[in-house]
C-alpha cells in the first residue's frame, strides 16, 4: 500500500512539474484579431498604428477614431487604443477633451463587459505628453493587457513605469515610432 501511495505521489509530482513546464511564467503576451484601432485623445497617431498593421500585412483590422459601443465591429477580439491628445484632432472631431474622455470610459466599460482585450499604445513620445494627453493615459493603461510605449514618453517622469507597477500592466518600450511595427509583429497572432 505504501509503495502504491508513493507511486501516486511521485506521479503527481511529475505531472505537476510537467504542468509548470507547459506554462512558463514569462510566456510572451499575444493578441488575437480581428482588431479595431482607435484613438484616445484624437491625435492622428492611431493612423500610424494602422500603417504599422498594414506594413505587417495584418488584414483583419479596422480603424475608427471615434469608436464606441454603437459602432464597434461585432466580432472584434482586441481593441488597440492609441493614446495621445491633439487639440487639432479634437477640433477635427468636433468634440472637447471631456467628451473624448467620456467616450473612452464608455468604450472601456463595454470592452470589459464583452471581455474584449485592450492593447494600449503611446507612440507620440514627449510631444504627446502634457495636460491634454496625460488625462487619457491612466484610464486606458489601467485596463490594458499590455502597453507599448515610445520610451521618450516615460523618460522625464517614469509615468508609464509607475502605472505599470500600479495596475500590473506589462510595458514594452521602444526607441522610435518606426520600431513599433516590429514590436506589434511580435505580439499580434
Amino acid at each position: 500500500m505504501r509503495k502504491f501511495l508513493s507511486l501516486i505521489l511521485a506521479l503527481c509530482l511529475v505531472f505537476s512539474f510537467a504542468a509548470f513546464a507547459q506554462e512558463p511564467a514569462d510566456e510572451p503576451i499575444t493578441f488575437e484579431g480581428p482588431y479595431v484601432v482607435t484613438s484616445a485623445g484624437q491625435s492622428a497617431d492611431y493612423k500610424m498604428v494602422s500603417t504599422m498593421l498594414k506594413m505587417n500585412k495584418v488584414e483583419n483590422y479596422t480603424e475608427e477614431a471615434l469608436l464606441s459601443p454603437d459602432n464597434i465591429p461585432a466580432d472584434v477580439k482586441t481593441i488597440i487604443i492609441v493614446i495621445g491628445g491633439s487639440s487639432k484632432g479634437l477640433g477635427a472631431a468636433g468634440i472637447d477633451a471631456e467628451q473624448e474622455l467620456a467616450r473612452i470610459e464608455k468604450l472601456i466599460a463595454y470592452a470589459q463587459e464583452k471581455e474584449i482585450v485592450i492593447l494600449a499604445m503611446h507612440i507620440g513620445g514627449m510631444a504627446r505628453r502634457g495636460d491634454l494627453s496625460d488625462k487619457f493615459i491612466e484610464p486606458v493603461v489601467a485596463v490594458s493587457k499590455a502597453c507599448l510605449v515610445v520610451e521618450d514618453a516615460n523618460t522625464s517622469d517614469q509615468l508609464f513605469d509607475t502605472l505599470s507597477e500600479k495596475y500590473e500592466v506589462p510595458m514594452t518600450y521602444f526607441a522610435k515610432k518606426s520600431d513599433g511595427a516590429k514590436v506589434l509583429a511580435e505580439i499580434l497572432k
Binding site: 492622428a44 506594413m55 491633439s86 487639432k88 477635427a92 513620445g125 522610435k176
Partner: peptide
C-alpha cells in the same frame, strides 16, 4: 512619417480640423 522617423526626424501627424 515612418520614413521621416527612420531618418531620425520626430514628427507628429495632426488632422486638419474641419471647422
Amino acid at each position: 512619417l515612418f520614413e521621416l522617423d527612420m531618418y531620425g526626424i520626430d514628427m507628429a501627424l495632426e488632422p486638419s480640423p474641419v471647422n
